[in-house]
Design a protein around this nucleic acid. Structure first.
Length: 297
DNA sequence: CACCCGTGGGA
DNA sequence: TTCCCAAGGGT
């Protein structure tokens, strides 16, 4: 993308949301921490709400204040500290990232996009977020909140497309301040605005500082024509089975009998399948004499 | 590209 | 109660 600047019509949106952020930014603990603290928060916030992350993030950083400290402990420790945040593969990938940061990057969270993307569990969003929020660098941070706000304000759509496109990235990039400090501030502002005001359901348009500039409002806030795919059924799913098996293992300090573990689920076949996938993910290890455990040491 | 991966809270 | 969906990433 070449040099961009907001169009004349977009400039009021940028300044209004920056002003809104000055007044309404939540004092979240990961806004004033180390790059490692930011990275941990971004892993935890992948598909998990802020309110559920808050009680886990603090103790985690207290216990593991650096990547090296986490790398020195086991995946089992990480999984137990992760608790019920969900998607435990994220805990495994965060641990693996800590190991890579320690061994390959001298213990310092990298700040370049390529190096960040090399970390397991770090994708386009997380790499951009770490650059912006941990290092104050210029990056176009596009999370679900940002995409929704821009879809509404600029495109007049009720929700962003299912998949991000190059066109959407380019349009967003044109809006981003080029000066690094303003750029990262803007990223935080749009995310926060989407999280608190321009929400997916029941947006608080009464409290919105840009209703006058909002294309979606100008069009009468049309409903989405093609609703997103429904999330797969959870009750009775392999995911639920995995969650159960891992919860059992988290809550014991020892190994457990493999047959006994799978028998604790309603469907033996499904439990075996779930256990196999946990083994493949490296979240569970097989031990002698038919026993399994979280990966200690 | 479609699908998989946890968990919980709010409407 | 049911359904949505929440600072995504990997395959």
């Amino acid at each position: 993308m070449a040099a961009h600047r907001p169009s004349r019509a977009e400039e009021p949106i940028v300044s209004a949301l920056l002003a809104w952020f000055d007044a309404h930014e939540r004092p979240l603990p990961w806004r004033s921490t180390t790059p490692w603290g930011v990275l941990v928060s971004e892993f935890m916030l992948q598909q998990t709400p802020v309110q559920r992350v808050l009680p886990v993030w603090g103790p985690w950083l207290e216990r593991w204040p650096t990547p090296a400290s986490l790398a020195a402990d086991s995946v089992a420790d990480a999984l137990r500290a992760w608790g019920r945040l969900g998607y435990p593969r994220r805990a495994g990938r965060l641990h693996a990232s800590a190991v890579m940061i320690t061994e390959r990057f001298g213990g310092a969270v990298p700040s370049s996009t390529d190096e960040l993307l090399a970390l397991p569990g770090v994708g386009e969003y997380t790499a951009a977020a770490v650059r912006a929020f941990a290092f104050g660098q210029h990056s176009v941070v596009m999370d679900t909140n940002v995409r929704r706000v821009l879809a509404r304000a600029l495109d007049g759509s009720p929700a962003p497309a299912p998949h991000i496109t190059a066109g959407e990235r380019g349009r967003a990039a044109a809006l981003w301040p080029s000066e690094p400090g303003q750029s990262s501030r803007w990223s935080g502002a749009v995310m926060e605005f989407g999280a608190l005001v321009c929400t997916a359901r029941r947006p608080s348009c009464d409290a919105c500082p840009i209703t006058g500039e909002c294309s979606w409002t100008r069009l009468g806030q049309p409903a989405s024509t093609a609703p997103l795919r429904r999330q797969a059924e959870y009750v009775g799913s392999d995911r639920q089975a995995r969650g159960h098996l891992l919860a059992v293992l988290r809550d014991t300090s020892a190994s457990v009998d493999r047959a006994g573990l799978t028998a604790s689920w309603t469907d033996d076949l499904q439990a075996e399948r779930a256990l196999r996938s946990l083994l493949e993910d490296g979240l569970v290890v097989a031990l002698p004499r038919g026993r399994v455990a979280l990966p200690e040491g």
